[in-house]
Nucleic acid binder design. Structure first.
Lengths: 231, 231
DNA sequence: GTTGAGTCGATAAGTTTTTATCGATATGGA
DNA sequence: TCCATATCGATAAAAACTTATCGACTCAAC
């Protein structure tokens, strides 16, 4: 099949790039507020501690175009990122599990900036039900399925105990959810077509700690062998 | 430099592998509790929705050895992962920023399982200072630097507002911190030798939402062009 | 003008990570 | 005992991602 001209949006952007785009967005916003009209890869890379070439490739993926010797037009590029990431069209989200983590997410003010609307939370705890937190209603989990269906909510945040993770997932999937942001340490089984983004906090911390250990061992070894550390 | 025989621990394990190890650990633990003595890559992969070959490679990286036709010995393999990830030796951690997210982390009970000890939190809010949350003390942020130094704490969790992120980081670095688990949407500038693990929640959510959009566009296109979806 | 330096865009090389292939080994049943 | 099968380990191929190279373009200074 030969790709048609407007296939750009369908050419999948690499996930590492997608993860960096919000950083570019924020940084360029800062430049705009500072009154700058253009920004170069070099500048961006410097500010974010990244490789300039990588920045250029990432921006290319959004469709943004730059001018030699000048850089990227701030507003145009912001638009390109917004368009690419879909910050414009609002997406409703349900939160399942209103424990400590869930409440932290409920209180988080930044969702709207990226086009998200955290509509409501669901929990099985009777003392929490039909209350509000940070202006968002906490509803009875038994209503979850029905409301997902009726409101056509596509994205859910899973912040329940690990033991309930798969069961809740099954409910969500049956109700027609399309994407799950998974804060439990469980790997969820979902049918093809349902997306899962894992946010395993303990795993991340473990990685950090392991890398710390390795770097220590390495520098120790280097000092023994008399090899200088890189600059 | 020719690698010496016991360099295995120094051969860096790929980060993607490190991120998967906690899942293997948890899954194998489950197998142990179910009374099984051996577990195969195939089984593990099935349970976690991964590629069996990948599982085998990952386990190899930990030093675990399996037996053909039998699989990996559950207890031995768990030990290998524990040893590899350093779950045994306890690591003290400071939390900086006791807002909603910080409190959620304070209340999180799972740290100790992986060898972490969240010692204390720090905040600038006078109403929070010298109080406790989930049994952990919340201290005056002005004492942070001194305590990092005196207690030789190497890992810090950064859960402060974005505006304060770099300043707090600088303080931590000067006090001798070695690794930062960064929950702010800021990319931190740190000197070489200091590790940063970014946990940009909005970025993750954005990625999920973008992928959702793409997959929708793709399946729509497929249906137009009459191409069958894969099974 | 002309020159020089900074930057983009495209292509290519390099690295890392994932997936595949294949022989070797252990188990259980004929 | 011998064979079929499941699984490991090692090596190789493929894919994804990052980094490098180079020509072209634009602005600014001379």
């Amino acid at each position: 099949m030969s790709p048609s001209p407007n296939d750009q949006a369908l050419v999948a952007i690499p996930e590492p790039t997608l993860k960096r785009l919000p950083y570019y967005y924020k940084s360029i916003q800062g430049q705009r507020e500072a009154g700058r009209e253009f920004v170069s890869c070099t500048t961006l890379a410097e500010a974010l501690g990244l490789n300039p070439i990588q920045v250029r490739k990432d921006l290319q993926a959004t469709g943004a175009v730059g001018r030699p010797k000048v850089g990227y037009h701030v507003s145009t590029t912001l638009d390109a990122i917004e368009e690419c990431m879909g910050y414009h069209n609002t997406k409703d989200i349900f939160l399942v599990g209103a424990g400590h983590l869930g409440q932290a997410l409920l209180a988080y003010p930044g969702f709207s900036e990226f086009g998200f609307n955290l509509v409501a939370a669901f929990d099985v705890d009777p003392t929490k039900m039909e209350t509000e937190f940070a202006g968002k209603p906490i509803l009875d989990a038994s209503r979850l399925s029905d409301l997902v269906r009726r409101m056509h909510v596509q994205i859910a945040i899973l912040a329940v105990p690990a033991t309930a993770a798969q069961a809740v997932t099954d409910t969500l999937v049956r109700a027609g959810i399309r994407a799950i942001w998974n804060f439990t340490p469980t790997r969820l089984a979902v049918p093809k077509g349902v997306l899962v983004q894992d946010e395993n906090l303990l795993a991340s911390l473990s990685v950090l700690s392991k890398q710390l250990e390795s770097s220590r061992a390495k520098s120790h070894k280097e000092s023994i062998h008399g090899e200088p550390e890189e600059l």
